[in-house]
Design a protein around this nucleic acid. Structure first.
Lengths: 321, 321
DNA sequence: ATGAAAGCGCTAACAC
DNA sequence: GTGTTAGCGCTTTCAT
């Protein structure tokens, strides 16, 4: 859409276009007074640099891609928001693409994005290792919540908090733990499951596991039918949606939380509360994403050097424990 | 990262750059044989068109902007998804920008987006009429859920369904209705409120109103304290988050739904279910957004001609009525 | 400290 | 049917 150009601003001021450009990109080359004057008039005229022109001239697109499986999963909107904000601060825009949990769509989105962006933030990739490896070797990409060796990656982890949750449950009398898992291909799922198993062993709890592959509330409700207070006195759920389904599924059978079964969820991203309020693990997702954007936008070229940063969630005890 | 350009391909073939360009964009202008030859060599050389150069030259960026107040509101992720999909089908990408319900940020986002996109889908604008009018006159913009005269707009409405809800409540014995509203500046809020009032009159129900300006679960829970079964036997809530808060707020005081108070929500976009399951209004948001993208991407230039399309939601009776 | 001018890669008149 | 050329808006030498 037509907007004010650098030439128009230059004319209005009676200076050269390059002066206007410099007022924004190399202000130290100009008299402070000139810079101020140019910026003021530019602001008045509503001048906003055209990224395409700049990209053509400099080779930098000042855009990044954000690829994620499913934006309706409440875990992701805060991720999008944080990416946006971090990018905006560096004056780059964000192209969002969904993969619908389909590796083929994921590859297509990457192909589509590659030529338009400086780098891609790939969240919760569902690609098999070998395909992901190709991507990581070729593209400037930061992985979010996928621990692929060789890649630049940021992990928003719950391992430590899960361990703390198990310790808390053990210390306060639970003995028979059940982990209700989520999607198999999710890194978080592996991290949570193994943390549960390890911590349970340490504290002498028994562990059973069931899985809600879809991660949906309805499926979690069904799965809740397989939970019996005689066999399970505490549950750790893959995320809050699943936890919610468990509460309601149990309640429907007259099993109370936390009376008969105690429960810990994960993510703390729902716009509503359960009743009783869910004990959960609060994830520093905004922080992790900010860091990921930082890594993505630092330096030049592809691929990015290997790096691995872990941001740990914290246990947040409310009423279901 | 330096990729093959059209000029290099042209040289390799001994033809003009424009011929190469035409082989891709206007193949019918060339001999089929030429097209084939060009495409073959281009492919061999790994030529990929530079979108920025194209954008600069044609003014078509093959991107649209999507501006929305708050992506963590569960109403919006499906909107983002639908916009993305509709855009993707036309080979355009989507730039998402949040305004945080702040008109000033909204204007800033519009400024930022203007030069980078072909048009903007402005969802649930919070701008005052006069400022919105300026935007609508200048930019190529389709309004979503804002009924501004003169603008191209798509409304995902709940008026008819609200009317149906009131009729149903009246027919099944409710007499004292309370409408629990949401953000004042929301078009949906006005539509719902006025539909409630009108329908209530028609059916001889009394109406009171309260408001949860923030639209959050916690605030809705507080507001539920002002609801008393003696004064209110049915509630229509601005959206499902608010409805959820009302249920829990009432339950905390021992007021049962639907026993003491019956309840209808709106949007049907939560990833979880209430207990009992919420009667609500299901909105055809995906459909509306697809249409909005279609309008946005049809024809040329700015502003867009006035148009107004209404997509009506449907009442969805479950267990709270 | 500022201006003039040459592109970045592509498309679109306008020639031939 | 194909070549020539003039920009799109911006950055960046190179002058002054």
């Amino acid at each position: 859409m037509a907007s004010t150009t650098i030439v128009e601003v230059a004319k209005a001021l009676g200076v050269a276009p390059s002066t206007v450009s410099r007022a924004f990109n190399r202000p130290h080359m100009l008299l402070p007074e000139t810079v101020a004057r140019v910026r003021e008039v530019a602001a008045e005229m509503g001048y906003v640099p055209n990224r395409h022109a700049r990209a053509l001239s400099t080779g930098r697109t000042s855009a990044i891609g954000l690829v994620l499986p499913d934006i309706t999963n409440p875990f992701f909107p805060p991720i999008v928001r944080a990416a946006q904000q971090a990018a905006e601060e560096r004056d780059v825009s964000v192209l969002v693409a969904e993969t619908d949990n389909d590796p083929r769509r994921e590859l297509r989105q990457l192909d589509q994005l590659r030529p338009q962006v400086e780098g891609i933030l790939l969240a919760s990739s569902r690609l098999p290792e070998d395909q992901l490896d190709e991507v990581v070797r070729r593209d400037r990409v930061v992985l979010l919540n996928r621990d692929h060796p060789g890649a630049a990656r940021v992990l928003i982890g719950s391992g430590a908090a899960v361990t703390a949750a198990v310790a808390h449950l053990a210390a306060t009398g639970s003995r028979r733990l059940c982990y209700v898992g989520g999607p198999r291909r999710s890194w978080s799922e592996h991290e949570r499951l193994s943390a549960v198993v390890r911590a349970a062993e340490e504290h002498g709890l028994t562990v059973t596991t069931v899985r809600v592959e879809s991660g949906t509330y309805d499926d979690a409700r069904s799965v809740a039918e397989s939970l019996h207070p005689e066999r399970t006195d505490a549950v750790i759920a893959f995320d809050d949606v699943v936890a919610h389904g468990i509460i309601d599924g149990l309640a429907a059978r007259g099993v109370t939380v936390p009376g008969d079964v105690r429960l810990v969820g994960c993510d703390d991203a729902l716009p509503i509360q359960t009743h009783p309020r869910l004990s959960t693990i609060r994830l520093p997702s905004a922080q992790g994403v900010r860091r990921a954007v930082e890594v993505l936008l630092s330096g030049e070229g592809a691929p990015l050097p290997e790096s691995r940063e872990l941001f740990d969630g914290t246990l947040c005890l409310r009423e279901t424990t």
